[in-house]
Every structure is written in structure tokens, then in C-alpha cells.
């Protein structure tokens, strides 16, 4: 039982990170019809931006983290919006999908060629000290991850639901055409979505890298988990992505302990298949009208 509780907490910690990646992916899809197949790489790259700041330029650790987040917002937010999505969205969905696939390869190869093909250790903010409460031991680092991720999610929810800009963003996500008629500055909202996505991905990157190391190929798994979390939770809203991320994190940790490690990666995939078969609108999603 204590084992189970330990696994549950560490599962929630990784799950919260997955949720960050999945929320950005969902927001982007809804607001700008951009299906970002490079989302996994968006979570892989910021850790390397921080490493570059630290190791190449000798910037202190905490400052590098801040720099990495800002640089991500510029590169994976603004530049992505205006250089790749902007010109392509008018050409239809397929060219954009293809371009984000190419972008994923570009980011992966760039990190591999310009930085390193080896996995890099990444420092943590909090030490790995174990805390034991009622026989359950968890590391301070894990609790820190959980806390940071949850605070980020709560802040985001507050922003989306509680501020005028946030509500305008939600209106844009639900129906850009109607939002435009209602006087919402749709273009600006779309840019904000890209910025938020980049910032969330950067947060996820900086939180996940101390646990799984930073490696150029990490994006494949992280991207897949983000897609699956978004679909499993239900595409219509942010809380779907949160639920999906947490669920996968917990299942992932339980599977690693109780099933085989060889097929640990398969857990989210099987979950995806089950959801598509039995609850295609997602666990929290509303049923939409017939597609055709």
C-alpha cells in the first residue's frame, strides 16, 4: 500500500508535467487549427537552451532557467507563429501538418548535431532528499515538481477563466469566426496562445529533464504522450488535457513497477486505443455532432 502511494505521488508528478505539454497542444489546436506534431520537440528543446546558457556562457542556474523560458517563447512561440504557421495556414491543414513534422526532425537533428547526441544530466532546483510521512517516502524534488506544475496549471486556469484576455482566448478557441464578430482581437489571441504553449512546453522541459535526463530524442515519447493525453482527456477543453496527463503519468509509473519495463511505453498507446474504441469524445469531452 505504501509502495502504491509512493508510485501514485511520483506518477502525479510526471503526469503534471505531461499535462503541461498536453494543455499547450490542445490550446494551439483549438485556437489556430495548428496540430503541432513537433510538440514533443518543443518540450525537448528548452532544456538544451538552459544547458547552452549554463555551459557555453556560464550563466547561473536559475537565470538560465528564466532565459530558457524567454528564449522558448521567442523561438517556439513568436518565430513558430510567424515563420511557419503564418504562411502555411492559408495553404490548408496538410501542408502545415507536414511542416510541423519537418520541424520536429529539424529540432531533433539540430540538438543532436550542434549540442550532443548523448543524454545530458540536468540539475534540479530542489535536492533529492527523501521525506517520510507515515511510512510513505517521497523526494523533495518530486514534491517540488508537483507543486510547480500544479501552480502553473492553477494560474493558467485562473487566467483563462478569470481575466478578460483569458475569456477572449477561450472564445477564440471555441469559435474564431464568432469571436471575431464579437470584437475579440483574434490575431492577438492566437499569438498569446502560441506564447502560452511555448512557455508551458518550456516549464515541462525544465521539470522533466532532471528526472529523465535531457536527450535529443526525448521528443518522440513526450510528443506522443502529449497527443494521447489530449485525446484521452477530451479535446474540447483544457481540463481534459490535465486529466489525461495525470492519468498517463500515474499509469506509467504503476506499469513500470508492476508490469514489464519493456512495454512501459505501450501503456499510453493502449489507453489511446481503448478511448478511441469506447469513448471517442474523450473522458471529459462532450460528444460533438457527426463529423460527416
Amino acid at each position: 500500500m505504501t509502495d502504491f502511494l509512493q508510485l501514485l505521488i511520483s506518477g502525479l508528478a510526471t503526469g503534471a508535467i505531461y499535462a503541461l505539454a498536453a494543455i499547450g497542444f490542445t490550446l494551439l489546436w483549438q485556437t489556430s487549427q495548428t496540430i503541432n506534431f513537433a510538440q514533443g520537440e518543443f518540450v525537448m528543446v528548452p532544456a538544451f537552451l538552459a544547458l547552452i546558457a549554463m555551459r557555453w556562457f556560464g550563466v547561473p542556474f536559475v537565470a538560465s532557467l528564466v532565459l530558457a523560458i524567454l528564449a522558448s517563447m521567442l523561438l517556439l512561440g513568436v518565430a513558430f507563429r510567424y515563420i511557419i504557421v503564418g504562411p502555411l495556414i492559408r495553404r490548408g491543414v496538410l501542408p502545415l501538418v507536414i511542416s510541423t513534422i519537418a520541424l520536429s526532425i529539424l529540432l531533433k537533428e539540430s540538438v543532436k548535431d550542434f549540442y550532443s547526441a548523448e543524454a545530458q544530466t540536468f540539475p534540479t532546483l530542489l535536492p533529492d532528499t527523501l521525506i517520510t510521512v507515515a511510512g510513505v517516502s517521497v523526494s523533495l524534488a518530486q514534491l517540488g515538481v508537483l507543486a510547480v506544475a500544479l501552480v502553473t496549471i492553477v494560474l493558467l486556469q485562473w487566467f483563462l477563466a478569470g481575466t478578460r484576455t483569458g475569456r477572449q482566448m477561450q472564445a477564440t478557441a471555441q469559435n474564431p469566426t464568432v469571436a471575431r464578430i464579437l470584437g475579440v482581437p483574434v490575431e492577438r489571441m492566437i499569438l498569446y496562445t502560441f506564447l502560452i504553449n511555448a512557455a508551458l512546453a518550456a516549464m515541462a522541459s525544465l521539470l522533466v529533464s532532471p528526472i529523465y535526463l535531457a536527450k535529443f530524442s526525448n521528443g518522440e515519447t513526450l510528443g506522443l504522450i502529449a497527443f494521447v493525453a489530449a485525446i484521452v482527456g477530451g479535446f474540447n477543453q483544457v481540463r481534459g488535457a490535465i486529466a489525461g496527463g495525470l492519468l498517463i503519468g500515474v499509469l506509467d509509473n504503476l506499469a513500470a513497477a508492476y508490469v514489464s519495463t519493456a512495454y512501459r511505453q505501450a501503456i499510453p498507446l493502449i489507453l489511446l486505443v481503448l478511448v478511441i474504441l469506447f469513448r471517442p469524445q474523450g473522458l471529459l469531452g462532450r460528444k460533438e455532432e457527426r463529423a460527416v
Binding site: 511557419i84 507536414i98 511542416s99 513534422i101 519537418a102 520541424l103 526532425i105 529539424l106 537533428e109 539540430s110 548535431d113
Partner: peptide, 8 residues
């Protein structure tokens, strides 16, 4: 890398 840029 070249291939990816070419595609984009």
C-alpha cells in the same frame, strides 16, 4: 537537417 528545411 537539410531535408527538413527543404520540406518546410
Amino acid at each position: 537537417l537539410i531535408y527538413a528545411v527543404l520540406v518546410m
